[in-house]
Amino acid sequence: MGILFTRMLSSVFGNREARILVLGLDNAGKTTILYRLHMGEVVSTIPTIGFNVETVQYNNIKLQVWDLGGQTSIRPYWRCYFPNTQAIIYVVDSSDTDRLVTAKEEFHAILEEDELKGAVVLVYANKQDLPGALDDAAITEALELHKIKNRQWTIFKTSAIKGEGLFEGLDWLSNTLKA
């Protein structure tokens, strides 16, 4: 009851909160994206053993963004963060064609999760600045995004280093979440 009430209130005042997970294989650029969104600059990162969490204010939505480590050893613990998640940002290294299959498998495994049934999905085809990076269509194909049913999703070409495409994605996300 209480939660519902606060939600209604905050929607009246146009200030909503959402919990968002940033997932993806290791070295996809998740942490860089998080800090690009949070601080607007590129920070030097090391592999995330664990998680980072920051709040990003965008379009009247307060996004609590959780960046989870993508290493094989940490992926099993992603599920600890699934409850109450409104959106998933799935980051793919578009130049790492060898591991696209793994990225696809992990992606579809996430979508199977009961606790993420209501979450919308935003895919970042990241690292577009690198030569040989696949474009969004190719990534859509590789991740078999068309198989997604009963869920809102979209894909954006991004480059976290150059800051391209990230906020277009957030635009989509904030609009979708407000709706």
């Binding site: 090391i46 995330t48 053993i49 664990g50 998680f51 980072n52 480590g69 940490i74 613990y77 600890c80």
Partner: peptide, 13 residues
């Protein structure tokens, strides 16, 4: 011990 790994990044930060 398995979940303790989730705290590592925060320590590093």
């Amino acid at each position: 011990p398995d979940l303790a790994i989730l705290a590592v990044n925060t320590f590093v930060k």
